[in-house]
Design a protein around this nucleic acid. Structure first.
Length: 655
DNA sequence: TTAGGGTTAG
């Protein structure tokens, strides 16, 4: 009796201690009854539960050294620790031992093994074991669903789910079968990865029929699944109809909005969450809202969130740190990004890539390459995305030799096969350097199918260097790949116009008219006092549009006195000079800059975000404004940043 | 007395 009390006291001490101090070795040797298997089981389970998998495996190994016989409760915990560590070697050893002790076909043991194999990427072994289980329950099915999903085979997970339903209907009334909420979450996460609207809707119906629609976690995953197949409205409906929303419900919905670029909705929902006294937001929430700030250039809100993260002691963590860095980069505040980056205690490949991309997009290619070199010497391996950032940095600065060097090193030294994004950067670099033939040859040699970005870069380069022949080839491809995008028709038309081929210009105009194509409307965003204002080209909707247009008239007089001449080369040639002048005067970035000038104190910097690329005339004009009004103006277009100061731009007129 | 799931950054 006394002995058992001591033991339970020891175990309770161990269990309390493990929450704060995972290193239990000393306590272990001191208290635990080393001859009792159940003591060891408790210790291993406790360690595994607290995430100290390495210590759990050590305990398992110590136990074996004492020649104690592990039982059906020992193995699942030990194997779970192998899964958590992705330690296939120890996992296989545990498997062998379980086999020796005749426990391989125990449902709990085999389930843990299936999970271990699939987490280590050995899905075939996992499936073999799964097929050998005489009587599967919903947990073993769920492990197998999740195994497929986590190994990128979500479609197979859905096929398996059909098998499950079949078996469930055959064994109706028996306890083992029967779907539960965990299994549904797993299947829904497969749906979200195959992006099938029909499947998601079907499963939604099933969820309602089986009475799981009130389950918060099922609802959370359903929202995500709808969003991933493009049904953001359906996600919101699920969110609104949820009886109980937890922080993950809010985070999921905010993240959905942030990821699809609905920044205003993401922020609105975040403010609603802040008002909701029942749920406290966390680092995941901040990460998602920071993404919304990055997209919409909401620097003021972004700064507040950064402050909040610091108050919560999160700014040094990888997720938040990277989100903050990305936000500052995308808001054009590279110095602030650098400070946040330097403060991060731990940096992973995404943090480094964000910084490389940030420098590149802000025209600081040398700094981008320096950071990239630091990354290499710090031992973090670059990945596919890192090289997109590196090559994009070279392309933004026209650094052809460096671009070529890293493009070849990427494959030869780092073993990363180039994808369309990498080729896109190279075509852009070669094309703009006037090496059109070389660019075309590279396209012909590509291992992946060239997409519209590739041909679009070549077409733009053909316009720049007046190459009709290659321009026609590129445009023909583009009309097939992306027939509704009128930008290509305009570019080709401009190429013809430059060559004086007016019949072809007319042919293009008719083609566009017959196909009913319209130029996508350009819009710009500017943040004033924490509120983001949207301007469309020729905007008459903004409540202050009359004041803005009056202000612009005055501005034009000043600009013309300073030598401004409208430059209309980027306007379609078929409109007359006067119309061209009018439409170019109301480009959204001009309106946004004017609004920024009107609503900020002299000397304050202005920041504008644009959905399309900036046109030559706006570029010239904003340079001049920065000089005559002594303002720093930052414009982020769809490709990069332009920092205007004292009549110059950071892109050095290369974009 | 042991096995399964949902939200975040490049």
């Amino acid at each position: 009796m006394k002995n058992s009390n001591t033991k339970s006291a020891a175990l309770s001490a161990l269990s309390q201690c493990s929450a704060t101090n995972p290193n239990l070795t000393s306590l272990f040797t001191k208290y635990v009854d080393k001859t009792s298997v159940s003591s060891w089981n408790s210790v291993i389970a406790d360690l595994a539960r607290n995430g100290d998998s390495l210590e759990a495996l050590r305990a398992f190994s110590s136990m074996r050294k004492l020649s104690l016989v592990p039982n059906r409760s020992t193995f699942p915990c030990a194997i779970k620790s192998c899964s958590a560590l992705f330690d296939l070697h120890s996992g296989r050893q545990a498997h062998q031992q379980a086999f020796v002790f005749g426990l391989q076909s125990d449902l709990f043991v085999s389930s843990a093994l299936i999970d271990m194999y699939s987490k280590c990427g050995y899905l075939v072994d996992a499936r073999t074991l799964f097929d050998e289980i005489p009587q599967r329950n919903v947990v073993s099915w769920t492990i197998m669903f999740t195994g497929y999903v986590q190994n990128g085979l979500s479609h197979d997970a859905l096929i398996l789910f059909k098998d499950f339903l079949k078996e469930e209907s055959e064994t109706e009334g028996e306890k083992e079968a029967g779907i539960d909420s965990v299994a549904l979450v797993s299947v829904l996460s497969a749906c979200s990865r195959v992006s099938g609207k029909g499947i998601t809707e079907g499963l939604h119906g099933f969820i309602v029929k089986r009475g799981f629609q009130g389950d918060t976690r099922v609802g959370n995953t359903l929202m995500d699944a709808y969003a991933k197949c493009g049904e953001v409205g359906a996600s919101r409906k699920v969110f609104d109809e949820m009886d109980e929303k937890d922080v993950i419900s809010w985070n999921s919905m905010i993240a959905v909005y942030a990821q699809v670029g609905k920044s205003a909705e993401a922020m609105e929902l975040f403010f609603a969450l802040v008002r909701d006294k029942n749920v406290h937001y966390n680092s995941v929430t901040l990460s998602a809202v920071l993404l919304a700030c990055a997209h919409s250039g909401a620097l003021q809100v972004g700064k507040c969130l950064h402050n909040q993260a610091m108050k919560m002691g999160l700014q040094e963590t990888v997720y938040i740190g990277t989100s903050v860095v990305d936000m500052y980069c995308k808001c054009g505040r590279i110095e602030a990004a650098k400070r946040a980056f330097n403060q991060m205690k731990e940096k992973n490949v995404k943090s480094w890539s964000a910084m490389v991309a940030g420098y590149g997009a802000n025209g600081l290619a040398k700094e981008a390459l320096d950071v990239f070199c630091c990354m290499n010497s710090s031992g973090v391996k670059p990945n596919y995305i890192t090289f997109v950032s590196v090559l994009a940095a070279c392309s933004h600065a026209g650094m052809l030799d460096e671009g070529k060097y890293w493009f070849s090193a990427m494959e030869n030294r780092f073993g990363i096969e180039p994808g369309v994004e990498h080729y896109g950067c190279m075509i852009d670099l070669l094309g703009r350097a006037g090496r059109l033939g070389e660019a075309y040859n590279l396209i012909k040699k590509m291992k992946v199918k060239p997409d519209f970005v590739i041909w679009g870069s070549l077409l733009a380069a053909c316009r720049m260097h007046r190459n009709v022949e290659l321009g026609e080839i590129s445009a023909r491809k583009l009309f097939e790949l992306d027939p509704k995008n009128c930008g290509y028709y305009v570019l080709l038309s401009n190429i013809y116009a430059d060559a004086g081929r007016w019949d072809d210009v007319e042919r293009m105009r008719l083609l566009m008219k017959n196909r009913g194509l319209m130029k996508p409307p350009g819009f710009s965003l500017v943040e004033i006092k924490g509120r983001v204002h949207v301007f469309l080209v020729g905007d008459m909707e903004h409540p202050e549009h009359e004041r803005i247009h009056a202000y612009m008239e005055k501005l034009y007089v000043e600009l013309e006195e300073a030598g401004y001449m409208p430059n209309m080369t980027s306007v379609l040639h078929d409109v007359n000079e006067e119309e061209k002048g009018m439409s170019i005067r109301v480009h959204s970035e001009k309106l946004a800059v004017a609004f920024g000038l009107m609503n900020s104190v002299p000397g304050a910097a202005i920041q504008v975000i644009k959905n399309l690329r900036i046109c030559g005339d706006c570029h010239t004009m904003i340079k001049l404004i920065s000089k005559i009004r002594k303002r720093e103006i930052v414009v982020r277009d769809s490709k990069r940043f332009h920092h205007f100061k004292d009549g110059c731009c950071s892109c050095k007129d290369y974009w």
